[in-house]
Design a protein around this nucleic acid. Sequence first.
DNA 1: ACACAAAATGACGCAACATCAACTTCAAGT
DNA 2: ACTTGAAGTTGATGTTGCGTCATTTTGTGT
Lengths: 249, 249
Amino acid sequence: MISIKEVTKQTGITVRTMRYYDQIDLLRPAGKTEGGHRLYGEKEIKKLQEIQFLKTIGFGLQEIKEMLADENHDWFAGLKNQLDYISKEKERLGQIEGTLRGLINEIMLNGNIDLSNMQKLIQLYQQNMDKREGYLNQTFNEEESKLLQSLPNINREDPETLEWIALIAQLKKHMSKGISSPEIQRLIKRMYEKEQEDFGDNKEFIEKVWEIRKSPQKSESAGFYPIDSETLNFFEEAYEFYLNKKGNL
Amino acid sequence: MISIKEVTKQTGITVRTMRYYDQIDLLRPAGKTEGGHRLYGEKEIKKLQEIQFLKTIGFGLQEIKEMLADENHDWFAGLKNQLDYISKEKERLGQIEGTLRGLINEIMLNGNIDLSNMQKLIQLYQQNMDKREGYLNQTFNEEESKLLQSLPNINREDPETLEWIALIAQLKKHMSKGISSPEIQRLIKRMYEKEQEDFGDNKEFIEKVWEIRKSPQKSESAGFYPIDSETLNFFEEAYEFYLNKKGNL
DNA sequence: ACACAAAATGACGCAACATCAACTTCAAGT
DNA sequence: ACTTGAAGTTGATGTTGCGTCATTTTGTGT
């Protein structure tokens, strides 16, 4: 028989928790001293560890209490149930994660953001949840819809998208250096090459996409990252500059 | 001005919740009738939607209150923080999921599953987990982490870094196509060029960084984007291949 | 016998509401 | 003007798993 302090040393569980478990009748002490101090034995320690384990896999104390009390508990069903629950929770977090990444990406593209901007973004996001598909399917045919996936669009976390974001963000960062600066021209070159790789010679499609980007509203309902017009204009100028230079060689 | 019931109809939020938000000063009604009934306007509905959104991405009401009240709130940092938190939670759930699957498998294999069996299983599992933790904590010393801290601030905020991440992620995605595939070689080429641009002749630094990247744990504590050894090896091979081909031209 | 550690009980706090309970106010119909 | 029922109000209490006081007893070593 060991004291409550000993238990906490052996298991890492706090005194308060032990008393609480006693209180809710989850784990009673094996006995008490005359003065009323709790005393625990081997059996209780083991049970305590079981409780701890069942807690880590997400069960609540009430459930645990019932599970351990019931000799005929259906562990298989219980665990499957729990697995189900945990999986769903994980999936939910996954979606939240995606949304967060999307928002963070947007901020990276747009630079610093204040409250009112954020409010707009949030509302945009909410609307987009269901609106998006409708508009997209109208404007693009199926093949193009597939290609679209590789463009920066909300909620995607794949590497191709990430690189577009990175490129545009860099463009923005170096914008002050002017369209003819080597940094910008290198970036444009990379964007040009990536465009070729990702979309090949599908010129029409590319133009459609840029067409959409030019209109913030269309962008919005298509679920693209809205690129601000300043950056967009800068890009177009730099792009033309690049093509000209290339043509002259 | 609309009644509280109208609000619940439009937003799906319950009356109780509205009153609670009023109580905690998160969202006051725009006004009240003589009798004291709450009245809301457009502005409040919008704010309510923002609150709902921020809630879905996991923020607490107190945080939300502060975020919306503070004109100069750093949304970027806040969201990144939240993403971090959510990611960790997701990972935790992933581990629980794994444990649950393991237990379920064991039960399926062993058939009989009464309380005492389950208790043994549980204790077995717990011991394994303890061992794992001990093992992880050993592999680390203080000096190393200090070295890592002193390296330049490489994190995800910087567009240049973001592109490295994008490139490596793409590399990983196309890994199955082999080091000599055109996709991979194009990526390697871009990486080579970017390396030249970003670091020029500062070879030492690059090597230090790659050295750290080779250890997943070091990477993690340095705040680097962790690259698994498989990808790393693949990169090295593909890089050599690229340099060879280039040398031959 | 006295000091000091360890233990006890009890109460409040947290987060985000749900759920009564007991009244009051609003809008509509007679 | 009066009634009625729906809708609104405040207030209290419960939920989960303890942490954190505050206050009082018990256990132990000298």
